[in-house]
Amino acid sequence: MTGVGFAKETGTLAAAGQYRRPARFQPLRFLKGVFVYGLLSLAAFVSIFPFYWMLVGTTNSAVDIVRGKANFGDHFWINVTNLFAQVDIPRVLFNSFFISILATVLTLVISSAAGYAFEVFRSRFRERIFAALLLMLSIPFAALMVPLFVMMAGVGLINTYTAVIAPAIANIFIIFYFRQATKAFPSELRDAARIDGLKEWQIFLRVYFPVMQSTYAAATIIVFMLNWNNYLWPLIVLQTNDMKTMVLVISSLASAYVPDYGVVMVATVITTLPTLVIFFILQRLFVQGMLGSVK
């Protein structure tokens, strides 16, 4: 009898189609539902509200934003005009795109080649070098910042694009990611290509690259976002206004003596858009890439 009672309560037998449960109100089940959906709604609210607040903020004056106005206003064009008056947005956007695109392309080329080589070439020192690389992930960037700055100053690269791009392109996490992904790359494809007469670099470009498209798509999103949102290092090495990126502009607008939050919100929306667009374009491949690209 205990078994049947248990089944009635949880609906196990009903689910299996052996027992039709009469429709009746079950307070415990109802409360559980309320709790779960309540929690999910709260999480959704916490995730979505900042975006909503950002969009609402673009249409309101700084005073309204500080007062906590949470619906759309009519200050949008004033905020946009003010932003363009205060900052050379086309130039700043160019800086951000130039740095992010170049750094992303170089990172993908260098780090994917490294990941591929780590997996494909056997050497006595392979695992030791790789372990040393992974160990370097544990060193916080703050500890590297000063020596890196001294190095860049030593070669006269302060306030140049190179200073921002160069340290970014050998990304240990992306090397690791590509090495893991390469494990799924069939070794027989490489053998077949060797018999077809391809050299190792040709195998990499003409077989590996097209086959691993979705891995590259996922890495593109991750690396582009990292570079686009990079703040600390550009803040240190990019010193003049004509070299600043969008993230630095938001920061300087927000830390003004009297920040105009409407303007800050417009700048934030402009900064958010490119990553969103790239994500939606590559979304399908991104998901495949995170799951493993070769079936």
């Binding site: 494809l189 077949a192 060797r194 007469g197």
Partner: peptide
């Protein structure tokens, strides 16, 4: 391997997934 005058057929076929049958066969 490409100059030994051999051709190999693999257990997993090892066809290039991004190419058509025509391109796979004509690749070498």
């Amino acid at each position: 391997p490409s100059k030994r005058g051999i051709a190999m057929v693999f257990q997993s076929y090892a066809l290039y997934p991004h190419m058509t049958v025509r391109d796979n066969m004509g690749f070498a």
